[in-house]
Design a protein around this nucleic acid. Structure first.
Lengths: 151, 151
DNA sequence: TGACATTCGTTTCATTTGAAACGATCTTAG
DNA sequence: CTAAGATCGTTTCAAATGAAACGAATGTCA
């Protein structure tokens, strides 16, 4: 009956983040997978390429926080399906310049409105100010993680 | 060069949540694993048992949002190591009452301060009000997901 | 009571994951 | 120039994952 340390998992932020994020990801995955045959890692690659192409695999790693093996597999799968294109870097042969192909861009542009719609649905109940605040907090947490990971 | 749809992944909430959460989880996993030989699913089981024991496996599923296979494996591993104890339910033989053992509770109590410390480090730069606000927003997002998942 | 459905927890199986090894390319130092 | 080391992306391999099948126990309904 001793309750020497009142630790409540429900108010433990890393846990809360993990549960909520996994649920959000699952909600998205269902849509992507079902409507476009695209898994989450692949969608992430398409998304960063749509915004920042050309990128190397390594650049995609940095932008998505996925490890390089995962990126490599997602890229391979997208190449197979002709949704992205690769091109050798002019001076550094190790780098591979990746861009969206025509069909890839089409998918990118048709997914965006849907992604935004799901996002809106998930954040309904939050004001614009709330969402902005949330982003700022994620920024700060990210900055702290930068610092921690350097140790 | 066309930028017909200005979609910025960096301001796309599901993506931001995912990246940040994965980084936080990794930071925690490193500590748990290294100092206590405990993986994240196991730590979650210990955490809910510390707070809400006795619980059945199913009760743990609900509290942690982990699927039952994962819980089953984490429970098996903790039982092997004597960190939790099982006992048959009085009237429903399908249910298994799980509690922390003595050693399990010791680990629970020694992990908590450390978990709190890491949490504090990650959220340094956020005020108490910020953190409270963050929790409220996660609550609301969770409620939206409840609604969406019912469709 | 007996048949049927449901719930609980485990196990199986195919897939996903990430750490580490790897070959290839580039950089740096001598 | 050459040797040693760093970086890039792929691949290998063992572990983690989750959907589904499963046996056991309980609940429901006629």
């Amino acid at each position: 009956m001793k309750r020497s340390s009142a630790f409540d998992l429900e108010s433990f932020l890393p846990y809360r983040l993990s549960v909520t994020t996994n649920r959000v990801s699952r909600a998205f995955a269902a849509h992507y997978q079902q409507e476009f045959g695209i898994a989450i890692p692949e969608w992430r690659v398409i998304a960063v390429l749509g915004a920042f192409a050309p990128l190397s695999s390594n650049g995609i790693c940095e932008r998505t926080a996925m490890d390089k093996a995962k990126v490599s597999r997602a890229v391979a799968s997208l190449l197979e399906r002709g949704l992205i294109a690769r091109e050798a870097h002019a001076t550094d042969q190790r780098l591979i310049q990746l861009t969206l192909s025509g069909p890839g861009r089409k998918i990118y542009e048709s997914i965006i409105p849907r992604a935004r719609a799901i996002e809106a649905e998930v954040t309904r109940g939050l004001s614009k100010a709330d969402v902005a605040h949330l982003h700022r907090m994620l920024d700060r947490i990210g900055a702290r993680l930068d610092a921690i990971e350097l140790d």
